[in-house]
Amino acid sequence: MTTIGDPTGVTVQDAILRADKVTMRFGGLIANREVDFVIPRGGIVSLIGPNGAGKTTFFNQLTGMLQPTSGEITFEDTSLVGRTPHEIVELGVGRTFQNIRLFGAMTVLANVMVGHHVRMKASWWGSLLRLPAVRAEEEATRQRARELLEMVGLSRRYEEDWAKNLPYGDQRRLELARALASEPKLLLLDEPTAGMNPGETAQMTELIMRLRDELDLTVLLIEHDMKVVMGISERITVLDHGELLAEGKPDEIRANPSVIEAYLGKGATTA
């Protein structure tokens, strides 16, 4: 176990992911400046901040879709820097997208089965020859996909429909099921309740907590809805202008004057 001192003063004993001085520069624009970040294993952590604070950029660096300009990201003692997104999924990091990105013209079931891709072993020639092992794996994957659909609350009725034809809330659920199918240890959710009504939001919050417990997950989420953030998070990290502003328990964040100024002050009035 590496014991990098937590920059915010709290020492995390069992961290599943650490980011160390992560900086992302696009030309002259600095999207993330020396962000330090720790996610304790088994926790639910939120990343918040005003629009343009660099949250999604940071997410994209964790999942390999962007490479940090400098800094180091380690997941269970493995460096993620320089790895491709699919390698990172294989290590056990799954994600959803802010604007839902499903494989629209594939069936609901196929979407989830694609998610299981990294955990499958069938080779191309095995698939070509339909070897018994491949067929068994395919069947097991199908079963698992159905279980996951059930777990996120999608009716089996939909499983042969095209993903793009699902209603909005169900698309979010499907995206979640697809991410879960890769058997992640760490699940990154980019605004999972965006565009949902209060009822759906409450269901989603409850679902995330339940999934964490049932599947032994660690969850990191970006979220705008303060009710969700405060209700669900064990720790909260605040980004502002690409820099780390504060880190702590929800109560601490709520009481942090610089956060209130930068974010909650504005957020509280609109909430």
Partner: peptide
């Protein structure tokens, strides 16, 4: 109808998401 075909279809639909879903 196999893992391979699904991976191809996913790639056709959205390459970067396919990559982020674990497809090389």
């Amino acid at each position: 109808g196999s893992r391979v075909g699904r991976a191809w279809n996913a790639m056709r639909e959205d390459e970067s998401v396919a990559e982020a879903t674990g497809i090389n």
